[in-house]
Computed example of a mutant assay.
Amino acid sequence: MSKHLNLKLEDRNTLHLKVCNVLRKAILQGDFEPGERLIQSELAESLDVSRMPIREALRKLESEGLVKLEPHRGAIVKPMNIEDIKEIYQLRANLEKLAVELSVPDLTEGDKHELKTLMEEMENTEDPEVFVEANISFHQLLIKRCTWGRLLSFIETLWNGFPQQTPTLLPGQMKLSNQEHQQIFEAVNAKNESKSATLVSEHIKRTGEALVNSLG
C-alpha cells in the first residue's frame, strides 16, 4: 500500500472527489498493482480522512472501471488497459465532433456567454478541481443543442471516469487546454460549426495521446 498519498482537507462537500482524484491518479500511475486490494482503513489512515469519503470514492472508481468491489474482499484494482484508453478517446473525438457540428448552429447568445464565463473561470484558476468542473460544463454546453438523443447518450457513457480528470493527471494540461478552448470558442462565436467540431476533435485526440504517453 502506497504511503505517499497526501490530501489537503479544504471543503468537506468535495472531500470524496478529492479522495477519488488522489486514488485515481495513484491507480493510473501504477502506485497500486492490478489485483491489489484497497483496504479502506489503510487508505483512511494514509489520507487522514474518515472511511465515508473513502467508500464514496471507491464506488465512483468502480463506476469508472478502475476498481471492482467484491463481497468480503472490498475494492480490487482492475488491470489498466492502454487500448481501452485509446478506444475511449478515439470514440469521443469522433462522436463529440458530430455532436458539436449539430449543436453549434443552434447555440444561443446566452449559451455563448456562458461558454465565455466558463472559459474565463478555467483561465483564472490554479485549482484542478475547479478546472475539472468548469471543463465538464464547457464540453457539455458545446453539445447542448444537439438533438440526437442516442448520440448524446453514447457520449455521456464515454465521459464516465477519468477522461474528464486529465487536468489532475497531466502536467501542463490546464494551460494547453485553455489555449485550445479559446480557439474553440472563437470558432463557435463565428458560427463556424465545421471548424468548431474539428477543433474539439483535435483537442480530445491530443489529450488522449498525452494520457497514453504519460502511462506508457
Rank of each mutant, 00 (worst) to 15 (best):
C20E: 11
I143C: 10
S214M: 06
A190T: 08
A99V: 10
V22M: 03
I155R: 04
I88N: 09
H203G: 03
V49K: 05
G30K: 08
S214L: 07
K18H: 07
S41C: 03
T207K: 07
A134I: 11
R12H: 08
L170I: 07
S63Y: 06
M174A: 03
F154R: 11
M122C: 15
E114N: 12
E129N: 15
L102E: 15
M174H: 01
R24S: 11
P34F: 06
E70Y: 04
L95M: 13
T168P: 04
R150W: 06
P53Q: 07
R55Q: 12
A75Q: 05
L176G: 07
K68R: 13
M119C: 12
V188G: 00
S196F: 03
V130I: 15
P163G: 04
E101C: 12
R55V: 15
A44P: 00
E42T: 02
L95Y: 13
D111N: 13
V130K: 12
V22W: 01
L17K: 08
A26Y: 02
Q183I: 04
T147W: 05
M174Y: 01
E129L: 15
I82Q: 14
V188T: 09
G149P: 08
R92T: 02
S196D: 03
P53E: 05
F154C: 10
L9A: 06
Q182Y: 03
P163C: 08
E123I: 02
V49S: 04
N21D: 13
I155V: 10
F185V: 03
N6Q: 05
F32N: 00
A75L: 04
P34N: 13
L118N: 11
R150T: 15
E126R: 10
L118D: 12
L58G: 09
Q182W: 04
H181A: 09
S153K: 13
S177T: 06
S63W: 13
S137C: 08
M1Y: 06
I54E: 00
E129D: 15
I136V: 14
S50H: 04
A190S: 13
K86R: 15
G172S: 08
P128C: 04
